Structures are given as C-alpha cells and as structure tokens.
Computed example of a mutant assay.
Amino acid sequence: MSTAIADIGIDYPRSGLIRPVSDEERAAYARDGAAVVRGVIPQDWVEFMREAVTRLIEESDPSSQNYADDGDPRFFSLTFPWMFDDAFKAWAIHGPLAEVARQVLTDANKIIFFYDQIFAKEPGATKATPWHQDLPFLPVKGEQQVRIWVPFDTATADGGAVHYLRGSHLWGKIYHPIGFKPLPEIVETYKNSPYEDMPDFEAEYDSYDWLVAEAEPGDLLLHDPRTVHGSRGNRTERYRRAITSFYVGDGATWNPHAANMFRNKNLTGHVTAPDLEVGGSIECDMFPQVWP
C-alpha cells in the first residue's frame, strides 16, 4: 500500500454504497456525458463529510480560493484537501466513491485516485461557475476518467445546481481553460493552452440541451471531464457544499501540457506535481491506487 494512504488517524464511517450504479445510469452517463445517481451515499458519510467541509471553510486556509467578487458572499474552493486532512483522505480512499469509479470505468484493471476539490457557495453567493470542461486543466490523457460531484446540501436550480451540456463530451472538441476569477496570474497561466477558444455558451444557452442536475444529499453526479458544464449562483438562504473527486483507470497517462492545473500556483501552489514520465502511468504516492 502507498505510504501516502496507509495511515488515517481518525475514526470514519465504514459503510459502503447503498446500491450499485444501474445500467440505466451508466447509459445516461455514456450518452449525455453526465448523470444523476440518486440515493447511493450513506447518511453517515454525508454527515461526516458535511462537517469536514464546513470545518475547512471556517479555517479558510491561505491555499483556498474565493471566486466571488470582493464583498460578496463566498464561493469557496480548495484543491487536494485529502493530502492534508484525514477526513478527506478517508473519503477519497476508503469511502464509497472508489467503488462508484470501478462500476463506471468498467474496462479498467485498476482505479487510481487523482485529486479532490471543495466547491462551496455561501447563501446569496451569486457568482456563477463559468462554462468549462475539466479535461483541459488536467495533466492526464486517456478515456478512463470520471469525476464524481457529491452535494452535502440540497442543490436546486436557484441554489447552484450544476448544468451539463448534454453530449458535449462526444464533440471531439477540447476548449481553452479559463480561470474562475480573472486574476492576471491565472490568465497568464492558461493563455498557452494547446486547445481552441470556447463558444459563448451563455449567450446561446437556450439553443442547447442542458441537464440541470438538481440533487439531494445522498445523491451524486457523474460527469465526463470533456463535458461542458457550469452553474448559476446560489440565490437561496442555504449553503451549497460539495466535493468533486476525480478517479482514473490504469489506461490514463501523464500529460503535463503547458496550461495544466499545476502551473496555476493560485490553485495548486500548496502541492508539488510529481516527476512522472510523459505518456506513462500516473500512479504514485500523490495519485494512489484505490482498487483493487
């Protein structure tokens, strides 16, 4: 076992998935590039991780980000919390999501955990998550990739539910990554992307077919990293707290292109990218095998 995941110094839930991902949900994911999987995360994990997310929000570590405009309610984010907090390590490595990834990436011989990220919109946080794909941020190449978004509060259309552009993962197009906040250092990082400019999906929103993924605690969202997605602001009086967890199969390879996330020090400056062979496996202490 990787030394990075061997020891967890806290007690954590031991419950597994309430039920498996269904054939219909896998088919929706393959067709649309996103799917809502309802009623699969046990309540003890929901409560455990809601508390963990809230704790890190309140700590406001300097490595976290606030994508909201100055003076507005926060749009909080933090990458790689699993590397610094045992609750997130338990969730990533021993929680139910590794089994979800195994059930989705059916042709993989191994499941590898890549990274996690907190996304939390405070009540009244009207800042939208801009339309984007995940893949152009990632130093990973290959088909065996899945991102799993888990809400710990009700996510409604007016409360920050994620919007997915159905079928966009099959267009064969990867778009230039953009920062969630137009800071000069972020703009500079992403300007050397090898990808093409993104259309104005906001201006043409009504001409596309969107999945507005309203969800409850206990549900999860599957999405392909090539799927265009984003969310509106949180116009409710409740939090919208969520964690995204990214898993890959052994067919995924290391692809540290010029605009990958590790070059955005505003986002990942608190961690160091591993020295891996381009085109080789990503498995290492930072990206550990979680199944089998």
Rank of each mutant, 00 (worst) to 15 (best):
residue 125 A to V: 08
residue 164 Y to F: 15
residue 247 Y to L: 08
residue 223 H to V: 03
residue 106 T to Q: 12
residue 42 P to T: 13
residue 138 L to I: 08
residue 90 A to Y: 09
residue 200 D to W: 01
residue 156 T to S: 15
residue 203 A to Q: 05
residue 213 A to Y: 00
residue 36 V to A: 09
residue 108 A to K: 09
residue 135 L to E: 09
residue 137 F to D: 01
residue 83 M to V: 05
residue 4 A to D: 08
residue 172 G to K: 01
residue 176 H to P: 00
residue 255 N to H: 13
residue 283 E to F: 01
residue 287 F to Y: 15
residue 183 L to C: 00
residue 227 T to I: 12
residue 246 F to V: 14
residue 86 D to T: 11
residue 104 V to W: 10
residue 125 A to L: 08
residue 206 D to P: 00
residue 55 R to G: 12
residue 166 R to F: 00
residue 144 Q to H: 04
residue 171 W to S: 14
residue 243 I to W: 01
residue 19 R to L: 09
residue 50 R to K: 14
residue 175 Y to V: 13
residue 27 A to M: 03
residue 50 R to H: 12
residue 60 S to M: 07
residue 36 V to S: 03
residue 166 R to H: 00
residue 271 V to G: 01
residue 247 Y to N: 06
residue 266 N to D: 04
residue 266 N to G: 06
residue 83 M to K: 14
residue 268 T to L: 14
residue 28 A to F: 01
residue 254 W to K: 05
residue 192 N to A: 11
residue 55 R to Q: 13
residue 235 R to D: 03
residue 182 P to L: 03
residue 40 V to I: 15
residue 253 T to Y: 01
residue 231 S to L: 01
residue 132 H to Q: 04
residue 262 F to T: 08
residue 153 D to W: 02
residue 15 S to G: 08
residue 25 E to T: 09
residue 46 V to N: 13
residue 175 Y to S: 06
residue 115 Y to Q: 15
residue 128 A to V: 10
residue 44 D to H: 04
residue 84 F to K: 14
residue 68 A to P: 02
residue 136 P to N: 02
residue 250 D to H: 03
residue 49 M to E: 08
residue 130 P to I: 07
residue 112 I to S: 03
residue 217 P to W: 02
residue 14 R to C: 12
residue 239 Y to S: 05
residue 281 S to P: 07
residue 41 I to Q: 02
residue 148 I to N: 04
residue 210 W to M: 11
residue 97 L to D: 04
residue 243 I to H: 00
residue 119 F to Q: 10
residue 125 A to K: 02
residue 217 P to T: 08
residue 4 A to Q: 06
residue 261 M to T: 06
residue 199 P to T: 10
residue 246 F to A: 12
residue 210 W to A: 09
residue 187 V to M: 10
residue 228 V to L: 03
residue 152 F to T: 12
residue 153 D to F: 00
residue 238 R to H: 05
residue 175 Y to F: 15
residue 30 A to G: 00
residue 212 V to S: 00
residue 41 I to S: 05
residue 82 W to T: 11
residue 26 R to E: 04
residue 67 Y to I: 03
residue 90 A to F: 12
residue 168 S to T: 14
residue 160 G to M: 01
residue 2 S to Q: 13
residue 47 E to Q: 14
residue 53 V to P: 11
residue 194 P to V: 14
residue 45 W to N: 10
residue 161 A to H: 05
residue 114 F to K: 01
residue 115 Y to N: 14
residue 167 G to F: 06
residue 211 L to V: 07
residue 77 S to P: 11
residue 193 S to F: 02
residue 162 V to L: 15
residue 208 Y to W: 07
residue 181 K to E: 05
residue 212 V to C: 05
residue 100 V to E: 09
residue 26 R to A: 06
residue 134 D to S: 14
residue 68 A to R: 03
residue 252 A to W: 02
residue 65 Q to V: 12
residue 109 N to I: 01
residue 48 F to K: 05
residue 1 M to E: 11
residue 199 P to H: 04
residue 176 H to R: 13
residue 108 A to W: 04
